[in-house]
Amino acid sequence: MGNGTGIGRVRGLGSSKQGGHHWVIHRFTAFGNLLLAPWLLVSLVRLPDLSFETVAAWLSSPFASVAMLLLVVSVFWHMRMGLQVVIEDYVHDEGNKLISLLALNAFVLIAAALAVVSVLKIAVIGGAA
């Protein structure tokens, strides 16, 4: 990818002007989800019950806290990239597309921030709330 000739400036970037970066990150986060989502499912099924004491004690252990934080980052990142492609494919009006992408980013950031703060709070104070 050179910066001299016209063809050199655009080669490898495609119509999105960013090459394969979006695609690659989508796959990286897919691998993260592939490890972390089954971990969450198996952990939930293996818990003796879903009472506050049980889930707070489980989620306040360092392993579970870190895995849950990584899950939130990987899942929400993957989700943001997937829905971005869906919006770009189906919303053709440029104004609506911009608003849809803005709403998507706001939703993902708010939800992920709420999840991260919740996990951190549980990790620090555990079931002593």
């Binding site: 989620l59 849950m68 709420l114 999840a115 919740s118 996990v119 549980i122 709330a129």
Partner: peptide, 8 residues
């Protein structure tokens, strides 16, 4: 997120 926030 609702579940995590409820625990927190």
């Amino acid at each position: 997120v609702a579940w995590l926030a409820a625990i927190a």
